[in-house]
Amino acid sequence: MALSNLSTYQDNLLLILRAQPIPSTVSLLKSCKKSSKTTERCTALIESLMCYEEGRNSLISEDGGVLAVVEVLESGSAQSREHAVGALLTMCQSDRAKYREPILREGVIPGLLELTVQGTVKSRTKAQTLLRLLRDTPYPRSELEPDTLENIVSNLISQIDCEEQSGKAKEMLAEMVQVSMEQSLRHLQQRALVCTPADLSVPSCVSKITSK
């Protein structure tokens, strides 16, 4: 896809936008396999174009445009998913009030939850940031209710109207919490196995005393 290659150069993006590539790119995205290289190039192009209001407006106005990106986020290759979440994050960061609802409407939460557990390092970071932007309030909560990812997602789940999407999101949240607990346990076990010089000094002193 020639436009994808051209979009890697910032100076070309405005020229590409003049050609109004979003409709044809979305159409191609809908028809090709989500794990294909074509999908990867399409989502890379869309992510680049989301830096411009014209590109964002074009995606929103295109029938099924945001949904096509969400579907890649759910079932694309690792690189495609990274581009997809990047595109949605750029949109939400540019104007949260304008793009939050259109993104939520397409059932993005389950895919974002999965990315926080199974995505690349960049995907996980972007997914967590987007989840924070998508919640009901963008501001940190009080100390009594910590601003944890689980709380943010629980807040989002409570706003999902579709029972199927809500159920899937809850399953993903449970899996995410389980993985987080397992990682914390492994970390504690590793720390328990590490013996520092300070730890060694006590038994060393004891052995010297007993030897006397």
Rank of each mutant, 00 (worst) to 15 (best):
E114H: 13
I103E: 06
V206W: 06
E150G: 02
I16N: 05
L131Y: 03
G86I: 05
E175I: 11
V194N: 09
I157F: 07
L144S: 07
L200F: 09
Q165L: 15
L131A: 08
A192M: 02
N5Q: 11
G65V: 05
S204M: 15
C162T: 06
T148D: 05
R186D: 07
T38F: 03
E171A: 13
L17G: 15
L59S: 01
K34P: 06
T116F: 00
D161Q: 09
M176Q: 14
E47R: 12
T125G: 08
S77N: 11
L149S: 01
E82G: 06
A68N: 00
A84C: 13
K170T: 13
L149A: 12
V194M: 03
A44Y: 07
V72R: 02
Y9D: 15
D63P: 01
A87D: 05
E62I: 00
E62R: 04
S48V: 06
A169H: 00
R18K: 13
E40I: 06
P138C: 07
L131V: 10
C92E: 08
R18G: 15
K168S: 13
C32K: 04
E171L: 14
S61I: 04
N5R: 10
C162A: 04
A97M: 10
E71D: 15
T148I: 08
D147Q: 10
K30T: 14
Q165W: 09
S184G: 12
K98T: 10
A198P: 03
L15V: 12
V206F: 03
Y52K: 03
A198E: 13
D147A: 04
E114Y: 02
G65T: 13
E101H: 09
L15K: 13
C32T: 13
T25W: 01
L112Q: 02
E175M: 08
A84I: 07
S7H: 03
V26W: 05
E106Q: 14
E163P: 13
L28N: 01
A97H: 09
E143Y: 03
G65M: 14
M172C: 14
